[in-house]
Design a binder for these strands. Structure first.
Lengths: 334, 334
DNA sequence: TACAATGAACGAAACGTTTCGTTTATGCAA
DNA sequence: TTGCATAAACGAAACGTTTCGTTCATTGTA
């Protein structure tokens, strides 16, 4: 029903090749250009991307493989990645791994079958074998936020360990000695941040007793239960580092519930500013990730790989973070 | 490079038509079936969806047009819609309207150019003209959550007005007379819920002074500022209804900040349970939407339209809600 | 004036499927 | 045996583009 390039051919008397050339930005005589444009307007012609894809072997669509589509972190990344892609004329086919490695594995195959031009991954698995089918199919891959332990892919993220290490200085220079951590231990970021925390403590010559090391998952429940547990210890910490948004949220809920005050009862420092912590009183010290830049750099890199403009070995891009200062850290007597 | 149906043809000696028939579930002789399956395995053949799409004029992909991809409500819908679609072999091409009607309008055209088989919409606009191009192209459309004012499309949602009306009974039977509302006025749901609130008050013979009617946007800021304003009135309300998740979150932050206690200082009732309110103390009364059912029904309906199994006039499906009872409403003396 | 060089237009083949109308093979009844 | 009905296989066309190698026209140069 919709007009095709053949209709344009008949209306203008030109050949398919010439019209195709025009459509793809090639040079045609001014008079022909006018004819073609008139015909296009009159017939409401639009190129059929499917037919085009069949011959070019490109879909102008990239697959986005996310560990979970309900996380606010994911939502924000999707927002920025989506804008950047659209600006370049690409669409995004999103698949949700539901925090399940088996689903993630299937999703990769699905994206391949959909012939996406590239894949952006926020992985759930820590190892990279699930991406092998895509790699073998020659599909460019860029990771965001989380590196893989056994194989290197292009990855845009922050230096989690260092960022945590630096953030911890804010606590340590205020003479805190008894500092606890609540961190996720299942993904890359949680482990790195935990390590950064331990680095800082070790470097300050401070010990971290096991009951101060709360490990869990990337969830509100981990923060909630973790904080509850910490605050019922006989020997409470004077400060707590929380490794991500969900954990921070959970921890704060628990504090509100128990009536603990920050920073009077305990000092807090967290990760992943999601805007709304700005509204909180007290304002929490927070490591802010450059979400927009991460999304944009990842897209830029992926499109570079797709076009062939980038052909070096896989690279890890670590972007800078910013510490949102607040009022949540108390200065103790030396 | 990847194997095609022609390779299978040559390996088996059968015709393209027969192999295609097999691939699409048709009957072939057992011996041929064996031959074909062997060849497929040996050559790692997978059907090229692009080529198939060119002749069938189907992409097995549906477009998802969301008002904002960063909202947790959207994330949850995406999760359920995505699962349901995948179960039926469909993928989702997601486009983000960034709460902007102009972008939304462009996105519709983009989805059409991508030849999606159907579109699921969480609209930002209140009027439906932006969907006209898709309708004219014969692409089935299903709305979720928000109806349009001027034209009827298939829509899966709840009865916001009634749900609010019923929820308000919990407040009114506890003898509250001075009840305020914080509601978004820009989208369908906010307006309906506001109306439901006013219905309930009117029906109880109660007046709602204008300073008790806070209208704003679907945002944390509206809830935060709204609650702050309400609690500084000389004549404070004894209860507040909050029309959605973000507003509820903002309102609670403000209360925590000011040190107001719920339900001692003010009773609260909200909308959109997002799991994590379960963790809160006190537990807030919340109208819970059937997110999973909404996503699944919408997909079911859309696929029905696509296949032609459903061909009645557009329908509005209003699913039932559930009131999560809590401890956030105080019983006043009569 | 002839010839080379340049640039635009052209025709046909190709991309990998599905589908339509026809032919071939099979089984059964007359 | 012949004829007929049924089921499976077949060949060819079609889907709407891009692209390759070639032809044609124009301009500039010797």
């Amino acid at each position: 029903m919709p007009a095709t390039i053949v209709d344009i051919k008949e209306k203008t008397g030109l050949s398919l090749a010439t019209i195709s050339k025009y459509l793809n930005g090639g040079n045609v005589l001014p008079e022909n250009k006018v004819k073609i444009e008139a015909a296009i307007k009159e017939l409401h012609y639009e190129v059929n991307e499917i037919a085009r894809g069949l011959v070019t072997n490109k879909t102008r669509t990239v697959g986005i493989l996310v560990f979970s589509v309900v996380s606010p972190f994911t939502g924000m990344i999707l927002h920025h990645v989506g804008s950047a892609l659209r600006k370049s004329g690409y669409g995004m086919l999103i698949v949700d791994s539901c925090d399940d490695e088996e689903i993630e594995r299937k999703n990769v195959k699905y994206l391949i079958s959909k012939k996406v031009d590239g894949i952006i991954v926020l992985p759930v698995a820590s190892k990279g074998d699930f991406l092998a089918p895509a790699k073998n199919a020659g599909i460019p891959i860029v990771l965001i936020d989380r590196s893989l332990s056994d194989i290197q892919y292009d990855c845009v993220r922050i230096d989690n360990r260092k960022a945590t290490y630096n953030a911890m200085k804010e606590v340590l220079t205020r003479n805190h000695k008894k500092v606890a951590v609540i961190a996720s231990e299942r993904e890359y970021t949680g482990r790195e941040r935990f390590n950064g925390f331990m680095d800082a403590m070790r470097n300050a010559g401070l010990d971290v007793p096991v009951e101060y090391q709360v490990r869990g998952t990337h969830s509100i429940a981990t923060g909630y239960n973790g904080m509850k547990k910490l605050m019922t210890l006989k020997d409470r910490p004077t400060a707590v580092f929380m490794s991500n948004y969900e954990i921070t949220l959970g921890a704060m809920l628990s504090m509100n519930e128990e009536g603990f005050q920050c920073p009077d009862d305990v000092s807090l420092i967290g990760f992943d500013d999601q805007l709304f912590f700005h509204l909180l009183q007290p304002q929490i010290y927070m490591v802010e990730q450059p979400m927009k830049a991460m999304g944009e750099r990842a897209v830029e890199l992926l499109l570079g790989r797709i076009s062939g403009a980038v052909d070096e070995d896989p690279m890890e891009i670590a972007l800078g973070t910013k510490l949102q200062r607040g009022t949540s850290i108390k200065t103790l007597d030396p």
